[in-house]
C-alpha cells in the first residue's frame, strides 16, 4: 500500500479550523473518524499526543508529521491538514505549522507504516510542493497537486 493510495478527499482537511496543537490533532483524527478509518477517536488522539509529549514532530518550514501506532486504526491511514494561519506545534525552527501529515497505523503493519513515513519525509523535502500544498484551500486542490488524473 503506497502513500498515494491512502490519500483521498475524505482524509484531507483544508482549511483547518484548529488554533492549538491539541485542537489540530483532534481535528485531523476526527477527519479520519468521519472517513471511517479509525474506530476510537480518543484512543487515537491519546496515541498521537503521547508521542508528541516525548518530542514534537514539528519539523522545519511549517511541516509536522504527528504519528502513532494504535489499535484504534483499522488500517494504515493518513490525514492531510492545511492551516492557512499556522499553528504553534513546537517545531524545530519555532515557525508555526501550516502543513500536517498525521499518520496512524495498527501495530502489525510496521513495514508499510515505515514506507509511508519515508514517503512523507521525501515529500517534505520538496519545498516547492510543500509551499503549494500550504496554499491549498480545499481537499480537491490538494489531490490535484498529488495525483495525476
Amino acid at each position: 500500500m503506497a502513500l498515494i493510495d491512502l490519500i483521498e478527499e475524505a482524509v484531507i482537511k483544508a482549511p483547518m479550523a484548529a488554533t492549538t496543537k491539541e485542537e489540530a490533532v483532534r481535528e485531523l483524527v476526527e477527519t479520519l473518524f468521519a472517513a471511517g478509518k479509525i474506530v476510537d477517536k480518543n484512543t487515537a488522539i491519546n496515541a498521537i499526543l503521547d508521542r508528541e509529549a516525548k518530542g514534537s514532530t514539528g519539523l522545519e518550514d511549517g511541516i509536522a508529521v504527528p504519528h502513532g501506532k494504535t489499535l484504534a486504526a483499522r488500517e494504515l491511514t493518513v490525514a492531510i491538514g492545511i492551516s492557512p494561519k499556522g499553528i504553534e506545534f513546537g517545531s524545530m525552527d519555532g515557525k508555526p505549522t501550516r502543513l500536517f501529515f498525521l499518520l496512524l497505523a495498527p501495530p502489525d503493519v510496521t513495514g508499510p507504516h515505515i514506507a509511508a513515513l519515508a514517503d512523507i519525509a521525501r515529500l517534505s523535502r520538496s519545498k516547492a510542493l510543500c509551499s503549494a500544498l500550504m496554499e491549498c484551500r480545499s481537499p480537491g486542490e490538494v489531490l490535484k497537486l498529488l495525483k495525476d488524473d
Binding site: T110, G111, I114, A115, L117, A118, A121
Partner: peptide
C-alpha cells in the same frame, strides 16, 4: 528498511528510541 529508519531520525520524524522500537517491530514482522 534500516535506511528509511535512519532517514526518519535524520529528519526528526523519529526519536532515537522510536527508531529502535520500530526496528524491533520490523524484525518481528
Amino acid at each position: 528498511d534500516t535506511r528509511a529508519l535512519a532517514e526518519l531520525v535524520k529528519y526528526r520524524i523519529f526519536l532515537d528510541t522510536e527508531q529502535e522500537e520500530y526496528r524491533r517491530d520490523l524484525e518481528g514482522d
